[in-house]
C-alpha cells in the first residue's frame, strides 16, 4: 500500500521523465545591476515617502520618545480613539514609548488570544473596538513603501491588521532599497517567525467597477513615523 504522498511524488517523477519543458538558459539568476552606489538613507526615505504617500499612507518624522508619542497622540486624537493594541516596547525600538503614551492618556489593551476554542472568540471580541494598532518594523522598503513586520513574542500580528488605524515607528536606518535587497542580506528572514508580512499602505479594494476604496478589511489609515 502506498500513501497519497508517495503516489503523487511518483506521478510527478513520471511526468518529469516525459516532460517537454522548454530549454532554459543555464546559470544563476541574472542579477540586475544595483545602482552604482547603494542609495543613501536620505534617498531611501524620500523614495519610501513618495511611494507610501501615493498609496494614501502618511509619513511623519519625529525625534525622541516624547516627539514620537506626541505624533501618535495627534493621530489618535484625529481618529477619536484613546485605546490601542501594540507590540511590546522592546520591539518598537523607541524606549519608554508605551509609558509616554500612557501619559498622553492613551490606554494600551494587552491581549493573548487563547488557544482554547471556547475562549478564543471572547478574546478577539474584546479587541473589536480598539481604534489603533502600534508596531515597529523590521525593515522599510524604499521601492514600494512597504513595512516588513516579523511576528514573534511581543510582536503580534493583530496590531497591524485589526484596528482601523495602523501606526508604525521605524528607525530610518532600517530602510532597504527593496525586498530583493533585504532578502539578499537576510536569506533566512522568512523563517524568523511564524509570520512575516510586508504591508504596503492601507487596505484597499477595487472589486466594484474598478473603483479604489480603502479600509475594506485591514486598516484604512497607515502612518509611518521615522525616527532618526
Amino acid at each position: 500500500m502506498t500513501s497519497p504522498r508517495e503516489r503523487i511524488l511518483s506521478s510527478i517523477r513520471d511526468g518529469l521523465l516525459k516532460a517537454c519543458l522548454p530549454a532554459e538558459p543555464n546559470g544563476a539568476a541574472r542579477r540586475r545591476p544595483d545602482s552604482p552606489a547603494p542609495p543613501s538613507v536620505r534617498e531611501m526615505a524620500d523614495r519610501f515617502s513618495a511611494a507610501l504617500t501615493a498609496l494614501s499612507g502618511h509619513v511623519h518624522h519625529a525625534a525622541g520618545t516624547e516627539g514620537v508619542a506626541r505624533v501618535i497622540a495627534g493621530i489618535a486624537g484625529a481618529h477619536q480613539t484613546a485605546s490601542f493594541i501594540s507590540w511590546d516596547d522592546a520591539h518598537i525600538g523607541c524606549p519608554g514609548l508605551l509609558a509616554a503614551l500612557a501619559a498622553h492618556g492613551l490606554e494600551r489593551v494587552t491581549y493573548d488570544v487563547s488557544g482554547e476554542p471556547e475562549r478564543r472568540a471572547a478574546d478577539v471580541h474584546a479587541l473589536a473596538g480598539v481604534g489603533l494598532g502600534l508596531t515597529g518594523a523590521h525593515a522599510a522598503l524604499a521601492d514600494n513603501g512597504g513595512l516588513v513586520l516579523v511576528g514573534g513574542p511581543g510582536r503580534g500580528r493583530l496590531a497591524s491588521v485589526l484596528p482601523p488605524v495602523h501606526v508604525a515607528v521605524v528607525d530610518q536606518r532600517r530602510l532597504r532599497p527593496s525586498l530583493e535587497a533585504l532578502l539578499r542580506e537576510e536569506p533566512r528572514l522568512l523563517d524568523a517567525g511564524s509570520n512575516v508580512v510586508i504591508v504596503a499602505g492601507p487596505s484597499r479594494t477595487a472589486d466594484i467597477e474598478m473603483t479604489l476604496t480603502h479600509g475594506v478589511h485591514g486598516p484604512k489609515h497607515v502612518h509611518v513615523i521615522f525616527t532618526a
Binding site: Y111, G146, D191, V199
Partner: peptide, 27 residues
C-alpha cells in the same frame, strides 16, 4: 506590490526561538 504580502511559516509559536525566553506569540 500587493498591500499585504503575508508569509506564514508554521502555526503560532508558543515559545520564542532560542534565547527569546519562554513567552510565545500572542496571536
Amino acid at each position: 506590490s500587493s498591500v499585504y504580502t503575508n508569509v506564514m511559516t508554521g502555526p503560532r509559536r508558543h515559545h520564542g526561538g532560542p534565547g527569546a525566553g519562554p513567552a510565545g506569540e500572542p496571536d
